[in-house]
Nucleic acid binder design. Structure first.
Lengths: 328, 328
DNA sequence: CTGAAAGCGCTTACAG
DNA sequence: CTGAAAGCGCTTACAG
């Protein structure tokens, strides 16, 4: 059997309470006693059973991160920094890919109730009844999960507007929008708003394809988009994957980029692998979003008051998928 | 306070043991009693506290997945399927990005001892003392973590050889190899072996850059590689990111692909987003690797005997980074 | 500063 | 089939 706090207590000649106190900081324990206990721990190679301690303290030390799929650059990068930040505060991260599986989201909600996890970060999500979310420490990204659930987002409207204005400035006359529409109310919807506004302002035609799709279907969406609007000379792609698929598909069709078609993307997460941006894109502050959202969650878990909406600034990066700046 | 098994027992007019039996399958419980208990559970919205049950049963229901970084297509895809498979068996996945943080790996080992997690999958890893790994349910990918630790791999040598022969067939005379060397003994090393063998066989020059690097440094490695061997007409890139960075860097330098330089990659994980492969590459069976490794781990956790080495077949995909097949 | 004891919420032989 | 009881390994008032 594994050695327990009892064995340590016996060996050190103290009560189990004292061992526990040493384990939890050792404040208010006599130096000598403490040393004896620590020696015993050392000798017995004692490792406290976390499960017992958690049961007692009624906390799990776990937070769940729900993403549609992890194998997508945006979510992967987010997961990376969420784990990094959580680790700093002593939390571990449970990874859940919930796309196609609404039950998984419900499960997490259950797990929170069961004290299996302390809280959760929903990046995207299905629609849940308000009362299911009640009393669960939850935070989200881009979407208001419920009216009391804090979330982090980026300046979707302004950034998109800015990106589209850039295409206009680069001479585009027929600008398309290709994206995947969120299932529920989301800040991401503002990208489409911005598109419609900019087109209207400049009197340009609307060439849009923005349906609710699953990750993995970008290829079909792009094909249909190019079929419906074969003559676009500029495209705003909502999401890095969409942009990448668009780029590849265009290349395969023999469309020259940026000569025949310029591309601007929202979210340029894969840039990190290169020193210079390849896609011209709106860069979301993914790392900061991750760190902020984790801290929000921990504050909620600890019962603190937190800000409901945090908006972070994006960056505009000029890459090779738009025409060279002459005026620069 | 949360409602407990006791409340349910009282409400149903039975003992707590009976409630527990109903919760755990309800076998050998009278139908009527069972119904009464279930009604009580329903009425009280009772959710069992997992922590207590785990303490009692001495199992956590958690497995840890250690990758250097999640935000890399290979690891992200692996993480996705690991979670999917683990979920089928009732396990949740703890995600840990251990690059740069050897302590994180040690922590997991500790957590296994503490019964915080039931087992772990190490994809890559630092060197650990054999006795640290002792008695821990562990499995890994591509690397033998220790002599009793099962692992899953792909046919690195054959696949690389095959890919290189393809470049030779496509007329390449100066074939380069750019990769990142694993820290420890690994099946991945066989890719370099295959390269050296093929070059020797065909009397071609060696143009190799294969150092131990961190994920994120691919850009520098590629730049140096192209500087050292500016006249390569074919490159084998070990790893999808390396290949992608190579492609982008070449494009930026004005090198035409595949006319001036053909590229073949090991691991074409991002293919999934397109219907047609973009990179010509060796496709690792990531999904199968993930599912197999999870099942191996669960078998180990349950104390079964498992196969030490599982080798899976790769696929060779022809994309746009090598010259058109004439003979096809 | 420290020990003895109660208890976290469940599970599981043990009797019956 | 089922109840009472012991116990999983820890933590935390409560006395002293």
């Amino acid at each position: 059997m594994a050695t327990t706090i009892k064995d340590v207590a016996k060996k050190a000649g103290v009560g189990v309470g004292t061992v526990s106190r040493v384990l939890n900081g050792g404040k208010s324990v006599n130096r000598e006693t403490k040393q004896r206990v620590m020696d015993a721990i050392e000798e017995l190679h004692f490792v406290p059973n976390q499960m017992a301690s958690r049961l007692r303290k009624d906390e799990s030390g776990l937070i769940a991160l729900l993403v549609p799929v992890v194998n997508h650059p945006f979510f992967a990068k987010l997961a990376y920094f969420v784990e990094d930040e959580a680790d700093k505060f002593g939390y571990s991260v449970l990874l859940v890919s919930s796309q196609k599986r609404m039950e998984k989201e419900k499960n997490i909600l259950q797990q929170i109730r069961r004290r299996e996890v302390d809280g959760a970060i929903f990046v995207t999500h299905y629609d849940h009844a308000e009362n299911e979310l009640k009393d669960c420490p939850l935070v989200s990204i881009d979407r208001p999960l419920g009216k009391d659930i804090p979330y982090v987002t980026s300046d979707n409207y302004d950034a998109t507007k800015n990106a589209l204005e850039y295409l206009v400035k680069k001479g585009c006359k027929r600008i398309g929008y290709v994206g995947s529409k969120p299932l529920v109310d989301s800040e991401v919807l503002k990208r489409e708003d911005a598109y419609l506004d900019v087109m209207k302002e400049h009197g340009l035609p609307i060439c849009i394809k923005n349906d609710v799709i699953l990750h993995g279907d970008e290829s079909n969406v792009v094909s249909e988009f190019l079929q419906d609007y074969p003559d676009v000379d500029g495209v705003f792609a909502s999401g890095h994957t969409m942009a990448q698929v668009l780029y590849e598909t265009a290349i395969q069709k023999g469309i020259r980029i940026p000569e025949q078609m310029q591309i601007v993307a929202y979210d340029g997460s894969f840039q990190q692998w290169s020193n210079n941006p390849f896609l011209t894109c709106v860069e979301q502050p993914i790392e900061e979003m991750a760190r902020v959202v984790v801290r929000l969650l921990i504050d909620k878990i600890e019962g603190k008051e937190v800000q409901l909406r945090t908006m972070l600034k994006t960056n505009f990066l000029i890459g090779l998928t738009t025409k060279e700046s002459k005026e620069n």
